[in-house]
Design a protein around this nucleic acid. Structure first.
Lengths: 203, 203
DNA sequence: TGATTTTTGTACTAAAGAGTAAATAACCCT
DNA sequence: AGGGTTATTTACTCTTTAGTACAAAAATCA
């Protein structure tokens, strides 16, 4: 009988939409990083006061963690669909072209918040930095598992090294993130993606 | 009659070595980024008090700029020697293997301070972020110029696109920086470098 | 209507941030 | 030795930081 999913609210109802506020917070963290985003930056973007933020999300660190959780699962993410492509080559292609398009997209901040949210940072951000590293690692492992499957299925040669290929792909995507956050265009990033694909083994 | 180069000091002599202090400051910025490095972090690593820092370096931003100026010109930099390799392929190889070795080297912080010093940051860091972007762009242009020379010299095909190749190389190096700062080993990064080299055109 | 519960706005706290004033200390030059 | 100059130390400024106390407001429940 958990009441979690029940929206029958007792007490004064929340005056803001939690999801919308979270998306606004994500945008601030994306642009400024964990250290660079102050609570004033966050709450003013979210359109709420500090006590509302603390009561809804916990604290700055938990707000960040919830923001990146949403980021990884949001509909426009290119990562998960790419994994479902039928061959390893097509997975790599979808990832790289998806990264090129998505990270340079000007409808949201450029680059990848999983990379730039907390890279070199203060001790206060050590926890979120570790979480980002863990999640990037997990992404890489998913790609590796997909490539291992591809070897079984015969669309990657048996001689291929799935771990190395996954790291290679991740490295280029992370490089594309830096390029995008420095102002590179989708066209420029597509050229990079094409060059990177040239050394990707095909079935 | 500029007295700049003259070391004949009048007044009380500085009690610390400016260069050593600058290297300590670089290390702090490298690990924590501009936003994450506080003046206390910096001055305690430098072994001096704040007024000594301000009188020797100006302010936090100028300290950062002087630190990255040293970083780019320090003897163990792999970038400039790589540019002097005799062919474009060898330039790319020296860059990638140099990046893999250098950025994972545990005698200093991992990754590249030109990337992680100020990526997503506060407004206070906007100036240093722009400076880092500018310098990364300049590095890329130097590589591009080197590849244009290689086409002239015949060790890159006339059909090669020097700008795209330079961006490709830079992207991978920046990706390697992220990987290194997340704990990747030199061996792992070498594998990435080898895969990246596979799609690099040879004369 | 009144009791209960939760959110909201304002105002606050304590700590840390960058940067500075001013007195003292250590050197050179005469 | 004494004057000029620069560095160092201590103690301070003012602002911003993350986080919170508390009273008023807005809903449900009885």
């Amino acid at each position: 009988m958990s009441a979690a999913s029940c929206s029958a609210a007792v007490g004064r109802p929340r005056a803001f939409d939690k999801q919308t506020a979270l998306e606004k917070a994500l945008e601030v963290f994306w642009i400024k990083g964990f250290d660079g985003a102050s609570l004033s930056d966050l709450t003013s973007a979210m359109g709420i006061n500090k006590p509302s933020m603390y009561s809804a999300f916990g604290n700055k660190e938990q707000l960040f963690l919830q923001a990146i959780e949403f980021y990884e699962n949001r509909p426009c993410s290119f990562f998960k669909p790419a994994l479902e492509q039928p061959t390893a080559y097509k997975v790599a292609e979808a990832m790289l072209l998806g990264a090129a398009k998505n990270m340079s997209d000007s409808t949201h901040p450029q680059g990848c918040v999983m990379v730039q949210g907390a890279l070199a940072c203060s001790e206060a951000a050590a926890g979120v930095k570790e979480e980002l590293i863990k999640r990037r690692q997990q992404s890489q492992e998913k790609v590796q598992a997909r490539f291992e499957l591809a070897i079984e299925q015969g669309d990657l040669p048996k001689s291929a090294d799935p771990a190395a290929l996954a790291r290679y792909l991740n490295t280029i995507i992370q490089g594309i993130s830096i390029q995008a956050s420095s102002g590179a265009t989708e066209a420029q990033l597509n050229e990079v993606a094409q060059l990177a694909l040239a050394s990707f083994p095909r079935g």
